[in-house]
Design a protein around this nucleic acid. Structure first.
Length: 809
DNA sequence: GCGGATCAC
DNA sequence: TATGGTGATCCGC
């Protein structure tokens, strides 16, 4: 319901300033922001709550101060070096950019309040909020004009708006409505991911494919103007069965943009056309989402907002853009993404909260462009997890797939078989990595989403499937016996091995890569496998994954991630590799990725950002190696002195400021999917839905999300990866478009000359070229090297093109 | 490992 | 009168 972004924003002095951003129109009913702030302050000041807020603020300020001190100690050399590392990582990320998915984020407008208004016409024109005198979870837009917001105590809201009606929450009702909405969503993506009662992500990529061939009839809906609709199937007549009248467009949002008011204003442009009380929607993503919103409104009389984008991070931001009752799309090309990102305040991104915002602001970072410009500094000031996350955001990257739900596995036999398979997979991975461990852990999640981990440590290392299974089997048996005679009804199982005696050695061996890809001290610490069963009774085969490296979204990893089309799995593997995988794995998969997913990469010529020589490597691996050598070795011609004393992995600043940005769920899927959380040992779980029901306040805790989202994929300091075996794989693979749907096509073989370093870049990939130019522009080192040539260009200040592209025609 | 901080709903 | 409850991750200790 209410987002954290809104939460607390009413109370802090600095944040009060931002309240001007809220809807409040001069001359209209309501309060101006100064008045709102004043009233809130009066009600807040002197309270215990306020005292605690001040205390917390001090702590944050202290963190910022520490960070600034640390920043002051960073040498330009450290910064240059960091820049190289970060840019190399950025280049890899850029390469893995995947624009082939269409992700939709659907968000019901003022959900609880809207439901209450719908069901009680008396509330229609009044400012209302759902909650209690202690806490509100939602307010309608009318009330928001008075400054009444979610996460505000009711008694303060009453001071702001004495006529405010506070309605106690009716969760059963919200759940029922939510279910109606979800039934619609499932038509477009059966594996959609519900984040809460009023929010969900959909991957409509597949739907769009199928829809292309749909006859108009299948995209036609009858408009219902008076009564509620029971049957909202396309092409079918509308039943009338409403006991009371439900207006099509509830007067929830008087100020919503007129052109976004469905359904009757749909006559705009070609689609959808209105024909005799019916509407035909087109086949584009935009049309699909209009259709979804139309159906939601027809069925529930409530409005929803939506965002359409190539990944979940962007889709989420988009859904907020034209709220309420609107939608927004970022087209699936890099330029569109970058244009959108350019001036986007980082605070808009899910995972960037109040504290992170403030810390970054202290570094002069407010927008994503600035976030990108400061990437090198950030890598020195923040944890690896954090700066990776930041870099993703600043490149407009996010998760491109959603997980699916799983069917139950309740037969003991199957469970043992599953366990054995997992152990075999795990053993294979161990063998590949040359690892042996002493601790075997199984993780079980039952149908109620309770998660248990059970571990056993043996005296000597194990590595074979038989050895591991022998241990895992006993752990599993214990759990099965514990519930006997009731079966264990599992939703997910995982096996992990840890306790590697030779971790240090391993790390050392991999230093050349790890030095760049990860600065933390966790190299390859464990290998894990987790197997999940899909709702289609297909197994998601584990592969492997990195541990700490996986930095993406744990946030809602609990919401289940899992499935992956095998074609996409390659992408995923590729991405996770680039971000976090140990080198060996990268090596193993990279060539295959290049071959399968992007032909043009096969003979790509990389230009080393250090020595500027072209590397006619076929694989990124070889290229990475070269850069490693360049960075480490004294062999760099032009700038050897700059690196003569440096060690590739020695840049770390001791005291890293940690920001607990939780990764946006989306992204994390790529990297965290199917990972295990070591810590969880036993969760005595009641069904969350039940607990919620008993909660008098806290309506924001949603229950329905658990239906779809509780699949655990938390982090695991280990490696794991998933391959899903699906029928559609081949199809998906074949229809994959080039990684970079470039707007600017470059003729094959055409030489691109970097305007900064003046060196010819023989890559045919404009994206890579752009990255190179960015690297050049943003790097003092290059400026120094080419001082005579680029004086006029070495101002990376131009925020409008921090990640800008050089357009080649 | 645990608890505090952060974030989201 | 009065400023939620829950779950998750990350990180430092």
């Amino acid at each position: 319901m209410h987002s954290t972004k809104e939460k607390n924003d009413h109370y802090k002095d600095d944040l009060l300033l931002r309240m001007g951003l809220n809807d409040n129109k001069a001359g209209m009913e309501g309060l101006d922001k100064e008045k709102i702030n004043k009233i809130i302050m009066e009600a807040t000041k002197g309270s215990k709550y306020y005292g605690n807020e001040l205390k917390k603020e001090k702590q944050v300020n202290q963190r910022i101060e520490n960070m600034m001190q640390q920043k002051a100690q960073i040498t330009s050399q450290q910064l240059r070096k960091a820049q190289l590392q970060v840019d190399r990582f950025a280049m890899e990320l850029e390469q893995s950019r995947n624009l082939n998915n269409t992700i939709v984020h659907v968000d019901m407008d003022a959900f609880y309040a809207a439901v209450e208004m719908r069901d009680n016409p008396e509330l229609k024109d009044k400012p209302i909020a759902v909650g209690s005198m202690s806490m509100l979870s939602t307010s309608n837009y009318h009330a928001r004009r008075f400054g009444v917001r979610a996460a505000m105590p009711g008694f303060i809201a009453k001071r702001l708006c004495p006529q405010l009606i506070i309605v106690p929450p009716n969760f059963d009702k919200y759940r029922a409505v939510s279910k109606e909405v979800k039934e619609i969503l499932a038509d477009y993506d059966p594996n959609f991911m519900a984040m809460s009662l009023d929010e969900a992500y959909l991957n409509i990529t597949k739907h769009l494919q199928e829809r292309r061939n749909w006859p108009e009839d299948k995209r036609k809906y009858f408009v219902k103007t008076e009564n509620a609709i029971e049957n909202d199937q396309p092409g079918k007549e509308v039943d009338k069965l409403s006991e009371h009248e439900r207006p099509i467009s509830p007067l929830l949002f008087e100020d919503s943009p007129p052109d976004l008011q469905p359904p009757l204003n749909y006559e705009e442009q070609n689609n959808p056309q209105i024909l005799q009380n019916s509407v035909v929607f087109g086949t584009s993503a935009e049309e699909v989402v209009k259709e979804i919103r139309f159906r939601i409104q027809q069925k529930t009389t409530l409005t929803a907002s939506a965002g359409i984008a190539p990944n979940t991070m962007l889709a989420k931001v988009c859904s907020d853009k034209n709220k309420p009752n609107g939608q927004y799309q970022i087209l699936p090309n890099r330029q569109a993404v970058m244009d959108f990102i350019k001036d986007l305040p980082i605070r808009k991104v899910s995972g960037i909260g109040k504290v992170t915002e403030k810390m970054l602001k202290a570094l002069g970072i407010i927008t994503c462009t600035e976030l990108y410009q400061q990437r090198a500094l950030l890598s020195l000031l923040f944890s690896e997890t954090s700066w990776h996350y930041f870099l993703h955001i600043s490149l407009g990257l996010g998760s491109t797939h959603l997980a699916r739900t799983f069917s139950e596995i309740s037969k003991a036999e199957e469970q043992y078989i599953l366990c054995q398979e997992l152990c075999s997979e795990l053993a294979q991975d161990l063998q590949k990595e040359g690892l042996k461990g002493r601790t075997v852990t199984i993780k079980l999640k039952n149908v109620n989403f309770e998660v248990k981990t059970r571990a056993s440590t043996v005296s000597s290392v194990v590595s074979t499937a038989e050895e591991i299974f022998a241990i895992a089997k006993e752990l599993l048996r214990t759990e099965i016996d514990a519930d006997f005679p009731n079966p264990l009804r599992l939703r997910l199982m995982g096996v992990r091995i840890s306790g590697f005696p030779n971790e240090e050695d391993k790390k050392h061996q991999q230093r050349s890569i790890i030095g760049f890809l990860q600065t933390g001290n966790q190299a390859l610490s464990a290998t894990g496998c987790i197997l999940e069963k899909t709702d289609k009774d297909q197994f998601v085969k584990p592969l492997e994954m990195s541990n700490k490296k996986s930095f993406f979204d744990k946030k809602r990893s609990e919401r289940k991630w899992s499935h992956q089309d095998s074609s996409k799995c390659q992408t995923m593997v590729k991405q996770s590799l680039q971000i976090s995988q140990p080198f060996q794995v990268l090596k193993k998969n990279m060539s295959e990725n290049l071959e399968t997913s992007d032909n043009s990469d096969n003979f790509q010529i990389f230009t080393c950002p250090v020595c500027f020589r072209e590397q006619r490597s076929i694989s990124l691996e070889a290229f990475n190696k070269h850069v490693d050598v360049c960075l480490d070795g004294p062999s760099i011609r032009e700038n050897s002195k700059m690196f003569s004393s440096s060690n590739a992995s020695s840049t770390e600043v001791s005291l890293k400021e940690n920001t607990n940005h939780s990764f946006s769920h989306c992204e994390k899927q790529h990297y965290e999917t199917h990972q295990e959380n070591v810590e969880i040992t036993s969760v005595d779980c009641m069904n969350l839905e039940e607990t919620r029901d008993n909660s008098s306040k806290a309506e924001s805790v949603d229950s329905l999300r658990n239906e779809y989202s509780k699949e655990e994929c938390s982090r695991l300091p280990s490696k794991s990866c998933i391959i899903s075996l699906e029928n559609e794989d081949a199809e998906l693979l074949s229809r994959q478009e080039p990684l970079q749907p470039c707007v600017h096509q470059v003729t094959a073989g055409q030489a691109l000359v970097c305007p900064v370093c003046n060196l010819e870049q023989k890559t045919s990939d404009l994206t890579l070229f752009n990255v190179h130019v960015d690297v050049c522009l943003n790097k003092g080192i290059i400026q120094e090297l080419k001082n005579d040539k680029v004086q006029s260009l070495n101002q990376p200040k131009d925020s409008s093109r921090s990640t800008g592209e050089f357009v080649v025609i």
